[in-house]
Design a protein around this nucleic acid. Structure first.
Length: 742
DNA sequence: AGGCTGTACTG
DNA sequence: CAGTACA
DNA sequence: GCCT
């Protein structure tokens, strides 16, 4: 069947240009967008905007204070856009912006899963025990009441889909040891190649010439990887800022010079940063001067240090030509305790997830970031109902579900126990609570009065509800298929579905069979270090196929979650590769962007990492992966007699099958791709809504499309080098990944 | 009354 | 095209 | 279900 017929023209245009590098006259892929004019793509009523730039045409430049404010007291880091913006101005009346802030983004706001950061300058993207204790102390009686009948785990601390209180020190993790060994093995594989992966980047240590020895950290902007414990972040961060350095909250902040990580497989997308162990900072502090980074490659504390070449192997996809501004000048940092990232909306910028009302509310209650759900008696039924609306009833009920979840999220974040609906209306928890009528508010009233929801009880009594809920949990089965299976085949449980699938394989699609096979395994969360280990295998394959191609783990991993539902990996070949294929990237076995992914997958399949496919395109893959048996991996048939290591039996505790997505993007698409692939889903929706309403732009994973307005030259001429540029262009205050878990 | 994100694969 | 999925 |  020629299913994608209608979309073909567009894809062809993309693919055509994308595959040009080797075959035809080299052409930058970004031109691709320029090709897409309205006449050429009748199915698309707007024009895709290019990213080539002369940035002076930025219409909606943010107040310079956006960036300048980030580095307090320092000079704004010159960027191609900002330097040419003489006068900050928002194109929209503040009123309009605020309007959207309250409406369009209210949903995002209240659905935060990771704890709201009100102050703006903390590192708390997870809850730790300290905070929990503090909160419990704060409202001990209330907490006791709220948590009374509940097992601690389900009702409180470890609630949520991402888990909260987990150890970050997985230093003894077998996954990690395995990853190291795998890395060592692959180093043998691609020896020589590894070196070329890493362009020489001068260690700042060499260039540093701090005048004041006590401020030797002044050339340094450090970023602490999420796995570094909070305590250590705090202590080292203080020392660094005390000595003139800065600490960034986002690894992709272009000013970051050092990423402090214990992970040997930490991935990011930051051309300027260098990966070092936190031990490096300690060594510098001890020595009273900057020490060579090479002596402290990222490694487990007290563990085996891999060679430096590995530690910095993720190649910055955007090399010097697009490099922006020097890492912060010593002048920037010499002003002292600099924490990159402002966190305040004081300059009139919009934090998308902080609506106006919410902001006011938060100001009144700085402790709103309650780490414990004090109101499970309200949020549980609401969420249960929402799940039924969404997964069972489907259709426009999804919007009902969204609002129920919204309210549940807002209530969950309150730091007091709700006993009366009026408590939710005074400052309204969501805009709806300021309205005259609200069905959700009525439901809460009912819950408080009777302890249950008639609507929920009623739905749960229906026999198909439970069946559809369970069946739609299988990957590839949604509400419609689940309903049909129940209605026509009398299937109510996954077990029954398995029986049916065995009897009549034709009942299910190939993907649904895969989903069914791994039903239990896909429900398991993936610890960060396993994500890293899996990504490490991808990196090995990429290094062999296309040296210089960056590997970035996005998704909830990038948002700093302690466990993830799947593994989201972005590949981005170098500019050189884009231009010259294997000529531009010596050692590459492929020549076009489209060839990378299939080659990488082939390698991963032979290694047993990729076990199944769910959907396969040339630049996008969804499927199943798992850690290979370590012995198989370490005594590969492909290696030259290095079997010695094969004897090392690292038994992986369980090698579950995991959902993995891999996508390939070009360097000019990366800022958009990162934004999209980092999510969260709600965050993306809000940002896209904002782009549309406020700017007349349609935001997607490769760029903007112009929807209305005729100022497209200005937009087209803008240049987007990193995520910050996108935020800036949209008139939004930058939000670091950890704060996007709405 | 109509909108609510935008894209892409599968069958 | 409808259904499902991704963030 | 809420918002415009």
């Amino acid at each position: 069947m020629d299913k994608n017929k209608s979309r073909r023209p567009k894809r062809d245009a993309q693919e055509l240009c994308a595959s040009i590098p080797s075959a035809s006259p080299p052409r930058r892929r970004s031109r691709r967008r320029d090709l897409r004019d309205p006449s050429a793509t009748p199915d698309r009523p707007f024009q895709q905007l290019g990213t080539q730039a002369t940035a002076n045409t930025l219409v909606l430049g943010l107040p310079a204070s956006l960036r300048a404010g980030d580095l307090e007291g320092g000079q704004p880091v010159p960027t191609q856009t900002q330097t040419q913006l003489p006068k900050p101005s928002l194109a929209l009346p503040t009123q309009l912006i605020e309007q959207h802030a309250t409406s369009s983004f209210a949903d995002v706001d209240v659905e935060s899963e990771g704890g709201v950061k009100v102050g703006g300058d903390t590192y708390d993207f997870e809850h730790d025990e300290e905070e929990v204790d503090e909160a419990l102390r704060r409202n001990e009686a209330a907490a006791a009441r709220a948590l009374g009948g509940e097992p601690r785990n389900s009702g409180g601390i470890e609630r949520g889909d991402e888990g909260c209180v987990l150890n970050h020190e997985s230093s003894r993790s077998p996954y990690r040891r395995l990853a190291e060994m795998v890395a060592a093995a692959s180093r043998r594989d691609v020896d020589g190649g590894a070196a070329s992966v890493n362009p020489d980047r001068d260690p700042p240590a060499a260039a540093a010439s701090p005048g004041d020895p006590k401020r030797f950290f002044s050339p340094v902007v450090a970023y602490f990887a999420p796995e570094v414990s909070k305590t250590r972040r705090g202590i080292l961060g203080d020392r660094i800022t005390e000595r003139g350095g800065a600490v960034a909250r986002d690894v992709n902040d272009p000013r970051v010079t050092h990423v402090l990580t214990t992970s040997t497989t930490y991935r990011h997308w930051n051309p300027a940063a260098r990966l070092v162990s936190p031990d490096w900072a300690q060594a510098c502090i001890r020595a009273g001067e900057l020490r060579p980074e090479d002596e402290h490659p990222p490694a487990l504390t007290g563990g085996v240090n891999p060679p430096a070449s590995l530690s910095s192997s993720p190649l910055p996809p955007v090399a010097s030509p697009m490099r922006l501004g020097p890492p912060p000048s010593s002048q920037d940092a010499s002003q002292g305790h600099v924490v990159v990232d402002s966190g305040s909306g004081a300059d009139g910028l919009v934090r998308p997830w902080l609506g106006k009302k919410r902001g006011a509310f938060a100001c009144q209650r700085p402790s709103t970031a309650a780490p414990v759900n004090l109101n499970p008696h309200i949020t549980r039924p609401l969420e249960e109902l929402a799940a039924i609306y969404e997964d069972v009833l489907g259709g426009t009920n999804a919007y009902k579900a969204r609002h129920h979840k919204q309210v549940a999220g807002a209530v969950e974040r309150l730091d007091f126990v709700v006993t009366d609906v009026e408590q939710l209306c005074d400052p309204p928890v969501t805009p709806a609570f300021a309205q005259k009528t609200s069905t959700v508010r009525d439901k809460i009233r009912e819950l408080l009065a009777t302890g249950k929801l008639a609507k929920l009880e009623e739905l749960k009594r229906k026999p198909d509800v439970e069946a559809v809920l369970e069946l739609s949990g299988v990957w590839g089965i949604g509400t419609e298929t689940a309903r049909k299976l129940h209605r026509e085949d009398g299937v109510s449980t996954v077990a029954q579905l398995r029986a049916l699938a065995a009897r009549q394989p034709g009942k299910l699609s190939a993907n649904q069979h895969v989903g069914l096979r791994f039903y239990e395994e896909f429900k398991e969360r993936i610890p960060r270090d396993e994500v890293e280990a899996l990504a490490g295998h991808v990196e090995d394959a990429v290094a062999a196929v296309c040296p210089g191609c960056s590997v970035t783990v996005a998704g909830s991993y990038r948002r700093g979650k302690t466990s993830c539902g799947d593994v989201d990996v972005l590949l981005c070949p170098s500019e050189e590769f884009i231009r010259g294929g294997s000529q531009g990237a010596p050692g590459a076995t492929v020549d076009t962007v489209e060839d990378i992914l299939p080659a990488v997958l082939a390698r991963l399949r032979t290694r047993g990492v990729v076990t199944d496919d769910l959907s396969t395109g040339t630049v996008s893959w969804m499927g199943v992966a798992r850690l290979p048996d370590s012995r198989e991996r370490l005594a590969p048939t492909t290696t030259d007699g290095a079997e010695g290591d094969g004897a090392v039996a690292v038994v992986t505790p369980k090698r579950l099958h995991r959902r993995m997505d891999i996508k390939t993007y070009t360097p000019d698409e990366m800022p958009f791709a990162l934004l999209y692939f980092t999510g969260s889903g709600y965050f993306n929706r809000s940002m896209r809504t904002w782009a549309d309403k406020a700017k007349g732009l349609s935001l997607h994973d490769r760029g903007f499309n112009l929807v209305r307005g005729n100022d497209m030259t200005a937009v087209r001429d803008a240049k987007f080098r990193d995520e910050r540029d996108v935020f800036e262009y949209l008139g939004l205050e930058y939000v670091p990944p950890e704060d996007r878990s709405v």
